[in-house]
């Protein structure tokens, strides 16, 4: 067995050249495209990861915003409920105050109406009492409508202070009102009775006032002395009103 050294050498060179050819035209291009695809896949993965991170961040942001909106909504609802409750309380207070005011006004009106009615009743009662008294007095003799009141007038004058009585006695004529026209005898009797109390008979200016019903009224610059039914009725009515 012999070795063909030329063939061995040529085949060695051929092997080296073939390695270079395949490296140049097959393995490097294919490995390069593999590396490029791998890099593209990595880039796509990185991009997808970045997109996922971005989506996650967007989702977190949306969740935070949703939570903030929910919190804001809850706060606004609470605020609105508070405001509604305050408004309700305010309206109720106002309604209550208005009702109270209306009630008070009603009570005032009622009180005024009652007072008016009472006054009217009092006036009617006074008128009725006057009528009753007048009708009763009509059954008495006319002398009784004056004579029965002369002593009372004198006693009332006597109870006046000394200075007042002195003023009456020493002053000008005093007005004497009577329920009816006085006779001269009655005027003399009254002057005589007042003179007994005052010391000197006063000068009398007699006037007739039917509203007195019965009795006399002496009017001086310093005092009025009443002794007649009208004054009594007025006093009684005032006492009744005070009593009520």
């Amino acid at each position: 067995m012999t070795i063909d050294w030329w063939t061995l050498g040529l085949q060695t060179v051929n092997a080296v050249v073939l390695v270079w050819i395949l490296a140049r035209f097959l393995f490097r291009p294919v490995s390069r495209i593999l590396a490029e695809r791998q890099a593209a896949a990595h880039a796509a993965l990185d991009e997808a990861e970045a997109a996922r991170e971005e989506a996650r961040a967007a989702r977190d942001t949306a969740q935070r915003e949703t939570a903030a909106i929910a919190a804001e909504r809850a706060a606004r609802i609470a605020r609105a409920q508070d405001e509604a409750a305050q408004e309700k309380r305010r309206l109720l207070d106002e309604a209550r105050a208005a009702a109270e005011k209306a009630r008070a006004e009603g009570m005032d009106d009622l009180a005024r109406l009652r007072a008016t009615q009472e006054r009217d009743l009092s006036v009617e009662a006074g008128a009725l009492a006057t009528d009753i008294a007048a009708k009763l007095l009509a059954r008495l003799p006319d002398e009784a409508r004056i004579a029965g009141f002369i002593d009372g007038l004198a006693e009332a004058v006597a109870k006046l202070p000394e200075t007042t009585r002195a003023g009456i006695a020493g002053g000008g004529p005093v007005t004497l009102r009577s329920a009816r026209a006085l006779s001269a005898e009655e005027q003399a009797q009254i002057a005589q009775r007042l003179g007994a109390v005052l010391g000197t008979p006063p000068a009398l200016s007699v006037e007739t006032d039917a509203t007195l019903l019965a009795g006399l009224e002496l009017e001086t610059p310093h005092a009025i002395v009443r002794n007649h039914f009208r004054a009594d009725l007025d006093r009684i009515r005032a006492e009744i009103a005070d009593h009520e």
Binding site: M1, I3, D4, T7, L8, Q11, T12, V19
Partner: peptide
């Protein structure tokens, strides 16, 4: 086949 000859196999082995 070239590999049926010793020179080719020897060349590859030398490489």
């Amino acid at each position: 086949p070239p590999t049926a000859h010793l020179e080719t196999d020897a060349a590859l082995a030398l490489v």
